[in-house]
Design a protein around this nucleic acid. Structure first.
Lengths: 214, 214
DNA sequence: CGGTCATTTGAGCGGAGTCAAATTGAGTGG
DNA sequence: CCACTCAATTTGACTCCGCTCAAATGACCG
């Protein structure tokens, strides 16, 4: 039983839950911003628009009745989320760090049928690959794969920032925060990664890291 | 490490890998049939059409390099699979039992953009919910939820057939065959289910079963 | 009836979880 | 700039759920 509830582990800092609308500088669609930890939407709320992230990061997550949390996915700058199979949202979406996003209603250009299909198909593939990772990989394999994925999605540089906390990573990978921390320590002492700071990772041996991903 | 390879555990019975085309009786699109265990497609193959199942069941699964297997999903009569985010397939599709399906090319009616979007969105949601189950639920919760899902998808009767083996179930739920068997035994001795035969389940106490699913 | 394969059951182990304490780090105010 | 606070992360010790290995039982079939 993995029963330590999310609420008990993470005393989420209370933040202003109302997104502020800023000037649309580079686009005709409005930019909404969210402070770190701020909720974008919750399950059951009506899905009204898509969000394309300009800066920052968002996590999608679900909760079990006793508070166990699973992060379904992270969305980074340039990525789009908010589309649903039903007319209401199925999961929580929250800003991981200060985030700005442009909203697109289904009538808009980005909401065109073909693009929505593309997004849905990619979202499906991503979730299916996530199932494979969580269902059959060890803690080390999951963390190694996660770091490579994050590096690639941030431009493929050999050092990059992790916008999310260890708890977010653990809940994304189906592990505990302690296990994630221990795997980081192991990778560091094996010389595969360096921790420039707590949230800044440098990949020192990408080949070895890839070799760990089964 | 969950390293017992699928090949080592399951000596898949060799079957005729060539689908036979039968007469299109109720539809203008061709019916293809697959014997139990027969491969429908494999990763890397070009995705040419959708399959709508007339009878039988299909599993989608991925393999890790050392043979660990994860079943991504099952498709039952009336359900559609075969759509992909890229132009090639990402996973294996195999008939679980003797299966007949109608193929629909993207130009056909069923392949219309709106329907494809709908399928992709539902597929995404299903995979995301699967992530939540595998990432955060215990063995008992996973099995209980699986049985309820199967019952519901087969018409909601209180008894139904499981088309797939215990190994398929285990690989779908991210467990081992022994654990699945033990949970079945536990649910049976607790009076929540009855096993009419090895593959025929009767739900004796659906309320209690639901209560187990967190 | 014997062979083969799927499933169940038993015994023991280990990877990741739990509980707890130490350490680091980011703010904040003096 | 430093002391202090509080949260995030790391580290340590121990536990337990689900895995591994092994053997028994059951189902199907020629």
């Amino acid at each position: 039983m993995n029963a330590t509830s999310y609420a008990a582990r993470a005393r989420t800092t209370a933040v202003h839950p109302v997104p502020s609308t800023l000037f649309p500088l580079h686009s005709t669609v409005p930019l909404v911003t969210f402070a770190a930890g701020c909720e974008v939407y919750a399950p059951g709320q009506r899905a009204t628009c898509l969000y394309r992230i300009e800066f920052g990061a968002v996590r999608l997550h679900g909760l079990l009745s006793d508070g166990r949390r699973q992060v379904i996915g992270f969305y980074l700058a340039g990525e789009t989320f908010g589309f649903e199979a039903t007319d209401t949202h199925s999961f929580f979406a929250e800003a991981v760090v200060a985030t700005g996003a442009r909203t697109h209603h289904l009538a808009d250009g980005l909401g065109s049928q073909a693009e929505l299909t593309e997004l849905a198909l990619r979202g499906m593939l991503r979730a299916q690959e996530h199932v494979l990772v969580i269902g059959r990989q060890t803690a080390v394999e999951r963390v190694a794969g996660f770091l490579l994925d994050m590096a690639e999605r941030q431009g493929g540089l050999k050092h990059f920032d992790l916008p999310m906390s260890r708890l977010d990573i653990a809940d994304y990978l189906g592990l505990t925060i302690e296990t994630v921390s221990r795997v980081f320590a192991k990778l560091r002492s094996a010389g595969l990664i360096r921790l420039r700071s707590i949230r800044c990772i440098e990949i020192a041996d990408i080949g070895a890291l890839r070799g760990l991903c089964a």
